[in-house]
């Protein structure tokens, strides 16, 4: 696997992303566009603004990190991009599709086809095998068993865990489990991969390995990855960092 380039661009050399890029949602080079996105929760204490007027685009093959302190709204933003929650206002475009203009069942199909999820706690189904976990998105999409098996095995091979295919996730190390989760996120060849603190449950060394794997996927295989992290060091190693604070984008820099 690749070693992380620790001598990469420093923050002071970063340049702010051009506003004009945001408006070009239908461009073939844009994987994700977020426009005027706001999320306001009603609570007993009154209205809570979780996100306010968020605008940014992500190019195909870009590896973007969303950083910010706890409660800044970064996970809420990731949930909106992943269509797990609907915004109060604004749009999210994935491959030019306004996802919130779709019905719930269409959103589910879209999540299956266009989005890959990687969770902090892996969220694997422990009672079944690695192979069955990895092919689950393909199974959900209605793909034939043979093709789903073939695809899943190919990805497991690429990620170096093909030998674990028949094992149950509980018998694997944390790093191996997260690789299984990464394999699952890629099996349907999604437009974007959303990773929510993917190294949060791993020790430093394993976390670095997993991060390197994501970086390889982005750089070598041109995958578009959006990663939420609270680790500034990891964030600086991605192509671009979006800093969220109090529900707003405070900084959007290319590393």
């Amino acid at each position: 696997m690749l070693n992380r380039d620790k001598s990469g661009p420093k923050r002071n050399s970063a340049k702010v992303v051009n506003e004009s890029q945001v408006n070009d949602v239908s461009s073939n080079s844009i994987a994700l566009a977020v426009k005027n996105l706001s999320k306001i929760y009603d609570s007993v204490a009154g209205k809570v603004v979780a996100l306010q007027d968020i605008n940014f685009t992500v190019k195909k093959g870009e590896f973007v990190s969303i950083v910010g302190p706890s409660g800044s709204g970064k996970s809420t933003l990731l949930n909106m991009i992943g269509a797990l929650d609907r915004p109060t206002s604004g749009q999210v475009y994935i491959n030019g599709i306004d996802i919130f203009s779709l019905k719930d069942s269409e959103i589910a199909t879209m999540r299956n086809n266009l989005i890959g999820f990687i969770f902090q706690s892996f969220n694997l189904i422990n009672r079944t095998t690695v192979l069955k976990n990895v092919k689950l998105p393909s199974v959900i999409s209605g793909m034939s068993t043979s093709e789903a098996n073939m695809r899943a095995m190919k990805i497991l091979e690429a990620l170096g865990i093909a030998d674990k295919a028949t094992q149950k996730p509980v018998n694997l190390s944390g790093g191996q489990q997260q690789r299984v989760a990464i394999a699952r996120s890629l099996v349907n060849n999604p437009a974007i991969v959303l990773a929510d603190e993917p190294t949060g449950n791993l020790d430093t060394k394993t976390g670095e390995d997993v991060f390197d794997m994501l970086k390889t996927l982005s750089h070598k295989f041109k995958r578009t990855i959006i990663m939420v992290t609270h680790n500034p060091e990891l964030s600086e190693s991605t192509d671009r960092s979006i800093l969220i604070r109090d529900g707003r984008i405070e900084q959007d820099v290319i590393n």
Binding site: S105, T109, R111, N112
Partner: peptide, 16 residues
């Protein structure tokens, strides 16, 4: 519940 959440996140329909 997390398994159901995961399945839905990766695209399982309510009907499934």
């Amino acid at each position: 519940i997390r398994e159901i959440g995961t399945m839905k996140a990766i695209g399982a329909q309510n009907s499934s």
